[in-house]
Amino acid sequence: MKHLALTTALVGSLALPAAAETIGVSIPAATHGWAGALNFHAEQTVERLEKQYENLDFVLTTTPDSGTQISDLEDMVATRNIDALVVLPFESEPLTGPIQRIAESGTWVTVVDRGLSQEGIENLYVAGDNESFGKTAGDYFVENLDEGSKVVVLRGIPTSIDNERVEAFQAALDGSGVEVLAMEHGNWNRDDAFTVMQDYLSRYPEIDAVWAADDDMAVGAIGAIEQAGREDEMWVVGGAGMKEMVRRVQEGDDMVPVDVTYPPAMIATAIELTALGVMSEGVPMSGEFILSSELITQENAEQYYYEDSPY
């Protein structure tokens, strides 16, 4: 049965009129919560657009590392003859060359979130704003903490994304008198964050707030704080907009007063815009599309809560 379906699909794709357009989508595999949500939104969007446009085909691949992603891109160009590419580069440096060659061959290129190391390659750039992600959180800390307050920070996987966020956070705190006690890597992972937070709690008798910089890490940090019975001493700000965290903000949880968005649904924005560009002749689509990081508060939390999302 499966064989049959596969053969028909193959025959079907061969029999399609030449006018059919194919969009390749290449994104990192679901190795952490945020990337999982990215996969979810990518699949949903592809499914929806294939229904919406009859002459539009998609190739969706997920990759565990840069090397595989380069092979995936080569396969897409060689065997599926894609007309447009939506790519979230696993790493900027190694993928800049391969993507540049695809762009030079006349294929439309949309780059998502992680910018390439050379400018002017892509036709469209859709991204979150890491600087505003760090600054939004930092501003909240400055406004809601007194001078001399003590803060600990959980950092993500060591990458330029993490560096940009942390630098913006520190810049926002500069001159405010809020003291950052320590910054260790929790790798955007619940278990790692739990461990690091436990150790912060044994190390510092006074902590007023935690910047967990990611909702998965916030879950881990909160677990450790509850274990130590120090819930009343500090609050935690995560980031990205995981639905459990948004729910807690919405319910007015004292420990999770706010959250900062970094929407994984940006992949949907990118695919939609690319499809629009490919299917609608003459609609200008080139440029940059930057999604700013918003502060989720109890008042506006409802609009950031996605019931169906796994994240």
Binding site: A29, A30, T31, H32, G33, G36, N189, R190, D191, F194, D216, V219, G220, G223
Partner: peptide, 12 residues
């Protein structure tokens, strides 16, 4: 029972 969750990054 520690964090009550499992994901692709559990036990890495």
């Amino acid at each position: 029972p520690r964090l009550g969750s499992a994901s692709a990054s559990t036990g890495l």
